Computed example of a mutant assay.
Amino acid sequence: MDEQPVQLLKGVRQKEALVFSDKIRLDWEAINQADFERSRAAIDTLLLEIAQLSDPATYPAACVVSPIVERARGLDQSLLSKLPQQALGDVQRDQIGKIQTFVQNAQHDRQQAIAAFEERQLVEWSDFFDTFESNPLTPEQRKSIVADEDATLILAGAGSGKTSVITAKAGYLLKSGARKPEEVLLLAFASAAAKEMSERIEEKCGEPLEARTFHSLAYDIIGTVEGSKPALAAHATDDKAYLALIRDILKALVKTASEVSKSIVGWFSYTRLDEKAPFGYCKAPMPPIVPLK
């Protein structure tokens, strides 16, 4: 038997008491169900978003899923958890259960959604990844390209194909329609690398996308904020002037700082190139040696 409190109505006939009890119960259920239905739009939206995570059309990044979780948690705390289950119908109880389960398992659900999205994209874009570079991209490179998290850190050593991944990712974003050209900021340290990336993307994707250097971006930002761009030092754009500046700095350090002087002399005295096979070196003229005066 249900362990519900029993209220005795003295001086009332049993039939009348039962009618009164049924009326109270129906009114109580109607009030709770009305409270539930007043949030129908928010509930339906949440249920749809939760269902879409099982087969996401776009990458379920944290910035996309976190607001869903917060809305679900807020609705549960303000309403759903306060509604007595016995006052609701089966459909309403099921909907509440889905939302509460999602709140409890949101991180797990997001990871499953990421795995499902990446698996589908890797298959759908396999030809693109096979042919974007002269050699097919590796599985690790492909996964880093389809990942569209708020921020993605890629750790890779020299010569591992970082530029290829960045260029292919920009191409993938454009061809898949995930981003428009004006929404992509592509940066490189060297102007030659930036030019190469721009040309590569336009060649493979048919859309122009200007890759820039960090310096040119910063220079334009200064011009926009200040209203004019400052004059650049000669060594900023002239390699010869840059090398001359480094030489002058080293000469000054050798003359004025004894500990630094010892380190510099020691480096030039004992540093050696790595051993290579007899035919491992390029046949190129030896660069001139510029003595420190």
Rank of each mutant, 00 (worst) to 15 (best):
L80F: 00
P285C: 00
R142V: 02
R179K: 15
Y281Q: 05
I166W: 00
G206E: 08
R179F: 02
D22L: 05
Q107H: 11
D274K: 15
L250E: 09
A193I: 14
K98W: 05
I24Y: 03
L75I: 06
Q86I: 03
S126R: 10
F128N: 14
E207Y: 12
A244L: 14
T101G: 06
E226M: 13
A218G: 15
L250C: 04
L174T: 10
D35T: 03
M1D: 01
L217C: 10
P139A: 07
E202Q: 10
A116H: 08
F128C: 02
L83K: 08
H215Q: 13
P139N: 04
A147Q: 14
Q33L: 15
G11T: 03
I114Y: 00
L8Y: 09
A51I: 03
E275T: 07
A234S: 11
Q4S: 07
G206F: 12
P84A: 09
F128T: 02
K204V: 01
G11P: 06
L245C: 05
V91A: 00
L185K: 04
D220I: 05
F279G: 12
G157P: 08
S81C: 04
Q14F: 11
S216W: 08
D27E: 11
S258F: 02
V12F: 06
A284L: 11
A284V: 14
V146G: 03
E16D: 13
I24H: 02
L153V: 15
P136M: 10
S54A: 14
P56M: 12
G89D: 03
W28F: 15
